[in-house]
Design a protein around this nucleic acid. Structure first.
Lengths: 333, 333
DNA sequence: GTGAAAGCGCTAACAA
DNA sequence: TTGTTAGCGCTTTCAC
């Protein structure tokens, strides 16, 4: 890596002259500017990022802390964040909390030593279960802004980007009710986190409003054998004619299981699930999905954070709600 | 953020005294050390990472460039990298090339200005198709080590971590042949990249060695309608009794399609695919999978890179081959 | 039009 | 045992 010093030496001018020339300062003579730029190009000079960071007290780097990179939704959000950040000249340091409160705290602390200008995060399951939010507050108090997405803590004052989880399952359930379904089950593998609870509430509301239907809820824990649980459900409830799934795996497995039981989809049973396009391809017929527009969530989160970094004084915080879309495929009537 | 300067001022000692005290230098008196540490703790002092990086010319940061974060395998490798890197005190800056040569080059250049100590990457499809490797060589010439994984360039001298792709499909195909399958098809959605080609060759070798079977290959392009292509395949080839899939989507879709055609799996047709555990849950019966141990690949790549960062003079480069495992489920006899 | 010097926060060789 | 100083690479104010 060439430095200003080396260029200056070779050109027999001072370091500051080189610096100014490269930054197009009009203090410097045209001749000199040309000479300096030529040599800089020759040596492929790039200003040292670390030195700039130290000088400006800005790293142009965002810390992203996500609970699980294998979750397609979270990965997609990360993708959106990365793209928007890059577009605005920022890099991202990725930390995976692995749903652990301790790792989340560590990541926050480790990066709050000048490594990043702010954070984008979705809260770890363990933190949500224990309602731990002090570490977020501390970070913000240090002057490092946070933007939360999807799994957010309402008691922390910061920008947020969320999904209309409640609305989405409410509407999805209503669609099945309007199809004439009588035994609609709600299956969820994410009932310990905030969004999972919201989704169940949306389902419950629609069921209750119908006046005649009864809620049937299957909660699947992480340690459970997912396909088996769903298999048992269908075995014990021959009347099931509708499924609303809070997560993609539950949706895909439920549809495949129904088919395996000899049920026709969607004639005998309809299935709707929070899932992505590629998930919908993994069933026959294709799964009807509630899409979360993960990339958009990422983009918006990055925009919010970068705005706040540039505008640290601003005191009003916004919560953006990204509406889901229902993509109808052949798994409903 | 508190600095040494502020602590020094408040304690009425010099900056270097504070620094040494905090670093347990035995130059400093016990009394002073205690006083300093107490105040540092009170103010929750953390050494500024950027200043340290500038001083040491080491960022303790690794640049990771992956083609696609939505690919489960790549995401899992990233997970492995992150974990190992963190364990050794490194952070990772993640860039997603999105299979684009230009983005890959940009990321490399943008981070080669002192932001990272080295790179771990898997080559973008576009770079592989055009056989572009200059940007890697330039980076290495700048003194920044690279570790490549999965999609590697054999003509670049660096450490590599790869999978026994050829072996894996060779063995998988042989298993189906030994089952007595006569019409084994190879389905691939990744035939433009190096590993996809290797997987096809392994299949071909096994087929040829059998002496009597003929290769049947279905190449699916990114723009194709994946389920439709596979549907047509089964429609036109009623004799298919075995499937080896180079990627998880092809495997899952093939199995579901076969079932949909009324074929019994595995009685009428066996299916084996490169896929993950969670993919295998998305079919009934569960998919027999070739596992790549993505996390291990990530761990090893991080280890190799960090070793090289600590050992820049070392001139022999290693290529680690992580053996795949065949996990037998009910989709084969 | 050019250069010297200070300073971002830290460490370490050297001086006291 | 403590302090002074220089330097990592850069920008910027101020002097010449």
């Amino acid at each position: 890596m060439v430095t200003l010093k080396q260029l200056a030496k070779e050109l027999n001018v001072s370091i500051s002259t080189v610096s100014k020339a490269l930054n197009n300062s009009n203090e410097i003579g045209k001749e000199t500017v040309i000479r300096v730029k030529a040599l800089a190009k020759l040596y492929n000079y790039k200003p040292n990022k670390v030195a700039l960071s130290l000088k400006n007290n800005k790293t142009k780097t965002i810390g992203v802390i996500i609970p699980n990179i294998l979750n397609r939704f979270l990965a997609k959000v990360l993708f959106g964040i990365e793209r928007e950040a890059n577009k605005q000249g920022y890099n991202i340091i990725t930390c995976i909390s692995n749903e652990s409160l301790e790792k989340e705290k560590d990541s926050l602390r480790l990066l709050a030593n000048g490594s990043v200008d702010g954070f984008i995060l979705s809260i770890a399951e363990e933190s949500q279960v224990n309602n731990e939010i002090e570490h977020f507050k501390e970070t913000i108090a240090k002057g490092l802004p946070i933007v939360m997405f999807d799994r957010v803590a309402h008691d922390v004052l910061c920008d947020k980007v969320i999904v209309d989880d409640f609305e989405a399952t409410y509407k999805a359930t209503k669609i099945l009710i309007e199809e004439g379904r009588k035994h609609i089950v709600f299956i969820s593998n994410i009932n310990d986190i905030s969004v999972g609870k919201l989704r169940e509430r949306g389902y419950n509301k629609a069921i209750l409003e119908s006046g005649k239907l009864k809620p049937i809820v299957l909660e699947i824990k992480k340690k459970d054998d997912h396909p088996k649980k769903i298999n048992v459900l269908f075995k014990n409830n021959k009347t099931i004619d509708g499924v609303v799934a809070a997560d993609s795996s539950s949706g895909v497995i439920a549809l495949n299981t129904a088919v395996n039981f000899g049920l026709k989809v969607p004639k005998d049973v309809s299935v709707i699930a929070f899932a992505s396009k590629s998930d919908s391809k993994h069933t026959l017929p294709k799964l009807t999905t509630i899409r979360q527009h993960a990339k958009t969530i990422g983009t918006q989160a990055a925009e919010l954070l970068i705005n706040r970094i540039h505008n640290p004084k601003c005191v009003d915080f916004s919560t953006k709600i990204i509406k889901t879309s229902l993509i109808k495929n052949k798994s409903i009537l």
